[in-house]
Amino acid sequence: MNLYLIRHGESLGNLNGEIQGCKDYPLSELGKRQVESVARYLKNIELNYLYSSDLTRAYDTAKVIGQAKGLTVHKWEKVREVHLGPLQGLSRNEIYEQFPATLKRSILTSGINGTETTDALTKRCQYVIDQLQLAHENDDVGIVSHGGFISILLMYLLTGDQWPTLHRPFQIQNTSITHIEWSKNSNKPLIHYTNRTQHLESLMDDQSQVGFL
């Protein structure tokens, strides 16, 4: 199986500097342009199936990719962003002020009451991988998800249940692509690349010329 993890385009939450979690936001105007760029790039990548988080910013990204690829988008709530409860909708500084524990622990795994626990995230990662391997052993699959969940899923693949105790080094930018492969003779994943954003280079050039940056 070849698995392509795609982060959604920039959302209004991203634009406004808000920590989103599972709070729903639409794509920004820049996000829509990013999505068009990644959809064009993915035309040259084989995909048989396309899944998406059910949150608007991811699903709207997936719909454009699906149109470009001629694929139906299947909503899958298991790949939505980490639920951050009382932190959702706040800026990073507001979170640090109101919840000082986040100064020492990642916002995604702070353990603050009302946020998704690391145990729940571990079970979610295990379920997603198990279901993909059962249903798509010989397929090329795209999943449109979120920066936090993609980075945690990568950590789970590399380190298993101990992922919450380790530093999570991955940067996952808007509409970036991460490619993971499981060969037919091995259950061990091969990570070809993470956070690929070369499809945005021409968009960045266009923005600089018309004053978007």
Results as ranks from 00 to 15, higher is better:
Tyr156Ile: 01
Ile152Ala: 02
Ser151Met: 03
Asp119Val: 12
Leu121Val: 15
Tyr156Val: 02
Thr117Arg: 08
Val128Cys: 06
Ser151Tyr: 04
Thr122Tyr: 06
Asp161Asn: 13
Gly160Pro: 13
Lys123Val: 01
Gly147Gln: 03
Tyr156His: 12
Trp163Gly: 01
Ile152Cys: 04
Gln131Leu: 10
Leu157Phe: 05
Ile152Gln: 04
Ser151Thr: 14
Gln162Trp: 04
Phe149Lys: 01
Lys123Gly: 12
Met155Thr: 04
Gly160Asn: 06
Ile143Asp: 05
Gly114Cys: 10
Ala120Pro: 00
Thr118Ile: 14
Ala120Phe: 07
Thr159Tyr: 15
Leu121Trp: 01
Ile129Cys: 08
Ile129Glu: 04
Gln162Lys: 14
Val144Ile: 09
Ile112Ala: 14
Tyr156Met: 02
Ile112Val: 15
Ala135Tyr: 03
Ala135Gln: 15
Ile152Thr: 13
Ala135Asn: 13
Thr115Ala: 09
Thr159Leu: 05
Tyr127Asn: 11
Glu116His: 12
Asn113Trp: 12
Asp119Ile: 10
Trp163Cys: 00
Val141Thr: 10
Asp130Leu: 07
Leu158Thr: 00
Ala120Gln: 12
Tyr127Thr: 00
Leu157Lys: 06
Leu121Gly: 04
Asp130Arg: 11
Thr115Gln: 06
Leu134Ala: 03
Gln133Arg: 15
His146Trp: 10
Leu158Ile: 07
Cys125Thr: 03
Tyr127Pro: 07
Thr117His: 12
Ile143Ala: 09
Asn138Pro: 00
Ala135Arg: 14
Val144Pro: 09
Asn113Gly: 13
Phe149Cys: 00
Asn138His: 14
Asp161Tyr: 05
Asp139Thr: 03
Asp130Gln: 12
Glu116Ser: 12
Ile129Trp: 10
Leu153Gln: 07
Glu116Ile: 13
Trp163Val: 00
Asn113Ser: 15
Thr115Tyr: 08
Gln126Thr: 00
Ser151Glu: 05
Gly160Ala: 08
Thr159Phe: 15
Gly142Thr: 03
Ala120Ile: 02
Asp119Gln: 11
Glu116Trp: 09
Glu137Pro: 00
Phe149Tyr: 14
Ile129His: 06
Gly114Asp: 09
Leu154Trp: 08
Gly142Ile: 02
Gly160Gln: 04
Val144Glu: 05
Asn138Gln: 12
Asp130Met: 07
Gly160Tyr: 05
Leu157Pro: 01
Gln133Met: 11
Leu157Gly: 08
